[in-house]
Design a protein around this nucleic acid. Sequence first.
DNA 1: GTCATTCTATAACGATCGTTCGAGAAGTCT
DNA 2: AGACTTCTCGAACGATCGTTATAGAATGAC
Lengths: 197, 197
Amino acid sequence: MRTGRPRSFDRDEALEAAIALFWRHGYEATSMAQLKEALGIGAPSIYAAFGDKRTLFLEALDRYLHTDGAFAARAVAEGPTARAGVERLLHEAAAAYTRPDRPPGCMLITAATNCSPQSADIQEHLRDVRAAGARALEAKFADAVQAGELPGDSDVHGLASYYEAVIQGMSARARDGATLDDLEGIARTAMRAWPTA
Amino acid sequence: MRTGRPRSFDRDEALEAAIALFWRHGYEATSMAQLKEALGIGAPSIYAAFGDKRTLFLEALDRYLHTDGAFAARAVAEGPTARAGVERLLHEAAAAYTRPDRPPGCMLITAATNCSPQSADIQEHLRDVRAAGARALEAKFADAVQAGELPGDSDVHGLASYYEAVIQGMSARARDGATLDDLEGIARTAMRAWPTA
DNA sequence: GTCATTCTATAACGATCGTTCGAGAAGTCT
DNA sequence: AGACTTCTCGAACGATCGTTATAGAATGAC
């Protein structure tokens, strides 16, 4: 058993509360004062449990990517075809970005858009993670070409770029108050751009 | 003639410099210290010429909407058909969002995404301006239905929502480093979703 | 030349930022 | 019980935030 005074709060619950704040307001716009109040604990407890604000944000993002944000990689990876994967990706995004019990949009996309120079590294980190997602999508399209699902002369980079833009656009629309129906409409319309044989 | 000591800087140039900063870093993430350095003048001069940071931002945004951001409303308004208007909108956005002498993306879309509660009004203001743009686009589609360009049962709201999402997605992609070619590819692909008779 | 006016520069304001020190509380271990 | 360890709480840290008071410089008016 671990010695010493036991922690007075649930670490997971605190992390979830931090996710909600960072998700809604972003990294820099979320203050330690807000975090203290939302997590219901003092600043020293936060530092002891999570490290500084930057480290807490990175852990919050990592948790997000394995929970609420995990649908994206899964949809692409598990889609039996590229088309099925993208279709599932878009429709699950529509639902995930408008859950009434969650902040709107995607944390990975929105949490570090307005950054001062001293948190440019955070901004770049999220950019890198997004870029990895776009590369996975592009690889899915390349596989589809290989498998004959898409024409041999398909612009796989252009397709990935387009659907990545649609995802980011859906997140932005959700943040502007778009409803689940709005986003599902966007998803359906975006699928009409699918390459025709 | 106006009496008193004359202003030592060009007000328009200063405003342009402020636009560049707010555009790149956003409203809250841009500090007065940055503004002082970029405008090359002291804080009291900024306050005398523009008012407080909030007022300066609103004037910067207004100027942006009449200059670099003016293409959008113009493309929709001047398009001889809805399709021509949207096509021009998307391609001009591709160029405007990747100008090498400008910050990437759209200031209206990105400048107030990460906001703390005390600047929620700024965030809402930009949201309202974006909503007005979306309504103009929807009206253009409604006109196109009236004129017979689009089928009578067209979902004009859905179409406007979709192309608004594409625009916001293009801005996000530009901020992630997408090139002019990338964005023009997105624009072309997005046009493939245009309703078929 | 002198006054009135308007801008500039320095420096400071109170508030808040993220972070940490120090004292005491709450456990386990021997 | 007492030693040891770990966490909590209140207070404070220096830095930076946006903003402004104050004093002096630069002009037009008389």
